[in-house]
């Protein structure tokens, strides 16, 4: 049996009287792209805060490569909802920040980051300030920063929700391509059903702090944006909408 890259086992968490997570168990295999889909306020971000170690669950554990990392930040890459590029650091220094925090010398950290700029379509932005970049480019930079922190597991919280529809479609296309190259095991949150089906291998529906249905998207990778125009795509969409409706 292969060990799961990431495993969340029976996690529960309450804020005061409010039970946010109820016995949540999910897993992620090497190289997989798994999605948590659900309405806002359904506990998705809280679950990410638990997995990243920022919050300690009341019950349950988080395992990374079989090792218990519950409540230990600094092990799993986490990209929060906003790009959070620091306005006072150039793009290269923003991207290299996780390396510098780990004690890598500035020059060395920049060099490591520079090697990946082209792959992420960011060449030429090294010396720019975040304020000079478009939303799509900022998102790429944030993703590169996430990747530089750890090539292990990445948590992406609504990575594309801040982008307008047209930009989003372009970024999806780009993202699918990059993911084929870097094969990062990724768990991401979205409330966009189309995005979930297009990008993920598996979809967990998270409703009211509980994992509802689990949907496996069989479509082989690499995928293209045209996938969301096929009957198969619509079948998945119908299934998810029915499940959300039944639960809600």
């Amino acid at each position: 049996m292969t060990v799961n890259k990431l495993e969340v086992r029976n996690v529960s968490l309450a804020f005061g009287d409010h039970q946010v997570l109820r016995d949540v168990s999910i897993h992620l295999k090497e190289g997989e792209l798994v999605c948590l889909l659900g309405v806002s306020g359904g506990g998705k971000t809280t679950l990410f805060n638990v997995i990243s170690g920022l919050l300690r669950p009341d019950e349950g554990q988080v395992f990374l490569d079989g090792e218990d990392v519950t409540g230990q930040p600094g092990r799993i890459s986490y990209m929060l909802q906003k790009d959070l590029l620091l306005p006072y650091r150039t793009i290269e220094d923003n991207v290299a920040l996780p390396l510098m925090l780990r004690g890598v010398k500035k020059k060395e950290a920049r060099a490591q980051a520079a090697a990946l700029f082209a792959q992420f379509g960011l060449e030429g932005t090294e010396k720019k300030w975040p304020g000079q970049l478009s939303g799509g480019m900022r998102q790429r930079a944030a993703l590169l920063r996430t990747y530089l922190f750890s090539q292990n597991v990445a948590l992406l919280d609504e990575p594309f929700s801040a982008l307008d529809t047209l930009t989003k479609s372009a970024v999806h296309e780009w993202y699918l391509k990059v993911m084929e190259d870097i094969r990062l095991s990724t768990l991401f949150i979205t409330h966009d059903i189309d995005e979930a089906i297009l990008l993920s291998d598996r979809i967990y529906l998270l409703m009211d702090g509980r994992i509802g249905e689990k949907i496996v998207v069989q479509e082989p990778r690499p995928r293209h944006v045209e996938f969301n125009l096929t009957p198969e795509f619509l079948a998945y969409k119908r299934r998810i909408m029915a499940a959300l409706h039944a639960q809600g």
Binding site: G74, I76, Y88, L97, L101
Partner: peptide
């Protein structure tokens, strides 16, 4: 300072001093 930015740095394993130096001061 944006609490999410603090969360981001913490998730990268930053300690109090690093958060002060890399986030709070320039912010």
């Amino acid at each position: 300072v944006d609490p999410d930015a603090v969360g981001l740095l913490r998730s990268m394993g930053a300690g109090r001093w690093q958060i002060f130096r890399h986030l709070k001061c320039p912010w």
